[in-house]
Amino acid sequence: MKQLLVFVMFASLFCWLMFSPIYKHVLVIRQALLQQEADYMLEIGASGRYGYIDGRMVEESRNRLSEYGFSAASLQYEVISTTGAPADNAASPLLRGTGIRLRITYPYDNLLNIDRLIGLAPPSADARIAGGGMKMSEYVPSQ
């Protein structure tokens, strides 16, 4: 009986040691892709040409991230300004010096359930990884 128990314990530990780094790597890559996309969208949206991040830009971002395996429906975008003005209105771009904050989140999708093999609790079902940042708008209205 002891030998069977030891076998089961070592088998689960061996599985965790083999596969956990792969899942952690996937998690790190997902977070890096979210951060890269947020940086890109902020660079474009806060440029002198736009001064906003609208729904069209968000849809293009969803399409880009879905090419990497993200579920487009699970991505959540939060676009706000430092002044409280809408940061997603193309008719009223944010003027130079106003901050645009962007946060993109995505669920863990049971990615860390393998940690249960060694007694670690995975993140809750509503926990999300995120990428984001803030950039000052460079938009200046033309005369």
Rank of each mutant, 00 (worst) to 15 (best):
G51Y: 02
L117Y: 05
P93W: 10
V6C: 05
F10L: 11
Y106S: 08
R116G: 13
Y139Q: 04
L111H: 06
T83L: 08
M41P: 02
D115A: 14
S12E: 01
N89G: 09
L27S: 11
A38D: 01
Y106H: 07
S92Y: 13
S81C: 07
S20M: 08
Y77H: 09
T105Q: 00
A85I: 05
R56E: 03
L34T: 01
I80V: 15
A38T: 03
I114F: 05
F10Q: 09
S124T: 08
E59G: 02
V28G: 10
A121G: 09
F7N: 13
G119D: 13
T83Y: 05
L111E: 10
G48E: 10
S81P: 07
A32H: 14
S81N: 06
L75F: 00
Y40P: 04
A90N: 11
M41W: 04
Y68S: 05
A72W: 11
M57C: 12
F19I: 11
F10A: 15
S74W: 00
Y106C: 07
G51Q: 02
A46V: 15
V8P: 06
T105S: 09
E60M: 11
M41Q: 13
A121Q: 14
P86H: 06
S20K: 11
L111G: 11
D39V: 07
L75D: 04
K2C: 04
I22S: 11
G132L: 02
L94Y: 05
M136Y: 14
P21E: 02
